[in-house]
Amino acid sequence: MEVVDPQQLGMFTEGELMSVGMDTFIHRIDSTEVIYQPRRKRAKLIGKYLMGDLLGEGSYGKVKEVLDSETLCRRAVKILKKKKLRRIPNGEANVKKEIQLLRRLRHKNVIQLVDVLYNEEKQKMYMVMEYCVCGMQEMLDSVPEKRFPVCQAHGYFCQLIDGLEYLHSQGIVHKDIKPGNLLLTTGGTLKISDLGVAEALHPFAADDTCRTSQGSPAFQPPEIANGLDTFSGFKVDIWSAGVTLYNITTGLYPFEGDNIYKLFENIGKGSYAIPGDCGPPLSDLLKGMLEYEPAKRFSIRQIRQHSWFRKKHPPAEAPVPIPPSPDTKDRWRSMTVVPYLEDLHGADEDEDLFDIEDDIIYTQDFTVPGQVPEEEASHNGQRRGLPKAVCMNGTEAAQLSTKSRAEGRAPNPARKACSASSKIRRLSACKQQ
């Protein structure tokens, strides 16, 4: 084909351009004929944790799935940006308080904090938690009735009371019990989460009196709706648990309003109706937990002794299953770290194939690490110290990083047969305790 000078094309009309061969290198194709290559998922490591896909996002930050490269346990990490926390009232204080509380709590029905990582340079905090497959609110939203069968609701409620009793025994008032803060594992274990607005009572406090509340409006008791200066913290949790039980068994809320002012007005009056299909035992329990006067409201001991709580409820309806993943529609909620794991395991070791967030990740503290002497050669063979940054567990980050890069360049065919977990650990520049 004859090559045409581009400067001469402006002298031709459209018809003349076609005659000189423009149609031979300008093609129009339908979008259905285009085959897009999927974007390669680059592996990203935060300390010893391999990052997966997004699980959810809230006002405080994002939650992603991660894999512990040492234990191969599935975890969830809450990623918090200090810049964003400053824009939220009491944001930083709530996060630090939640970390302090979770560090000393150990119960099967309370979410466990596994690790805390802090990135000084990017001003990011990573709260590594045990993995929960789904939230209770997500399960309720997945069915038209917006409720659980009585047998399933009873099982979840009993676990909620177990976890709540443990928190109260530790002198902690949750203040925000609701389905949105109750998570579930694949085995059906309920976990109380989000202790950001919780309050730890003084060890020598005479009672459970509280003065502040930041919980969700629909789950607040009349004493808070009416603006009382002080109130019983434990009875606030009992009320919120009662509203939660009402919601998961009926699909409704005892109090509603077009806006928060109308909602608080209705809560302050204390008038509500219980659907007739709840039955006398459940209705009596709800009335005891939603008692207007805090002094007359049920205690956890009274809830445990109630006939509806103690009764064994046979399954009359099919239980609400864990819904498919909202993004991938995966009904099994498979591990989202698998594509990243395959990338590390299947590809040659190259620095361009993975990302390490930083050479140094500070753990379990908000301060910069200490310094240790770096050896410097002298005339008599002895070495003197220069400062060298280290990880919180004493690992020399720069030395590990250099060693990792040197190993990656060394030709050794046997290394390709290593397991995925050992490869992740070798790529991680800074081991965590």
Rank of each mutant, 00 (worst) to 15 (best):
V4W: 08
P6T: 04
M18A: 15
M22A: 08
Y36R: 10
P38E: 10
R42T: 04
A43L: 14
K44W: 10
L50I: 15
G52V: 07
D53E: 04
L55F: 00
G56R: 01
G56L: 02
S59E: 11
L67D: 03
E70A: 11
E70Q: 03
C73I: 03
A76H: 02
A76V: 06
K78Q: 07
I79P: 01
K81N: 11
N90R: 06
L101S: 11
L102F: 07
R106L: 07
R106H: 15
H107P: 01
L113Y: 15
L117S: 01
E120M: 07
K122Q: 01
Y126W: 01
M127I: 03
M129T: 05
M129S: 03
C134R: 13
M136S: 01
M136Q: 01
M136E: 00
M139G: 03
S142H: 12
S142A: 15
E145G: 05
F148P: 00
P149W: 03
H154F: 02
Q159Y: 06
I161T: 10
D162V: 08
G163C: 01
H168E: 10
Q170E: 01
I172G: 04
V173C: 05
K175W: 02
I177L: 05
P179Y: 01
G180N: 11
L182H: 00
L184H: 05
L184M: 02
T185H: 02
T185G: 02
T186H: 02
G188Y: 15
L195T: 15
A200L: 03
A200S: 03
H202W: 02
F204Y: 03
A206F: 02
D207V: 07
T209P: 09
R211T: 08
A218M: 10
E223V: 02
E223W: 01
L228F: 10
D229G: 06
F231R: 09
F231V: 04
G233A: 10
K235Q: 14
K235A: 15
W239E: 00
N247H: 09
I248E: 04
T249K: 00
T249W: 01
P254L: 02
F255R: 03
Y261F: 02
K262T: 06
K262G: 10
K262D: 11
K262N: 10
K269Q: 12
A273M: 04
G276I: 02
D277W: 04
D277C: 10
G279H: 15
S283N: 11
K287H: 10
L290D: 00
I300F: 08
I300M: 05
I303N: 13
K311D: 10
K312Y: 08
P314S: 10
P314A: 07
P315K: 14
P315D: 13
I322Q: 02
P323F: 10
P326S: 10
T328L: 06
M335G: 13
T336N: 04
V337W: 02
L341Q: 14
D343S: 10
L344D: 12
D348I: 11
D352P: 14
I356D: 09
I361E: 13
I361R: 13
Y362F: 06
Y362I: 14
T363L: 08
Q364G: 03
D365R: 15
T367G: 15
G370S: 13
Q371R: 13
Q371M: 12
P373D: 14
A377Q: 14
S378C: 11
H379D: 08
R384G: 09
P387I: 13
C391N: 02
A398V: 06
Q399H: 07
E407M: 14
P413R: 12
K416W: 03
S419E: 09
I424F: 06
L427W: 13
S428I: 15
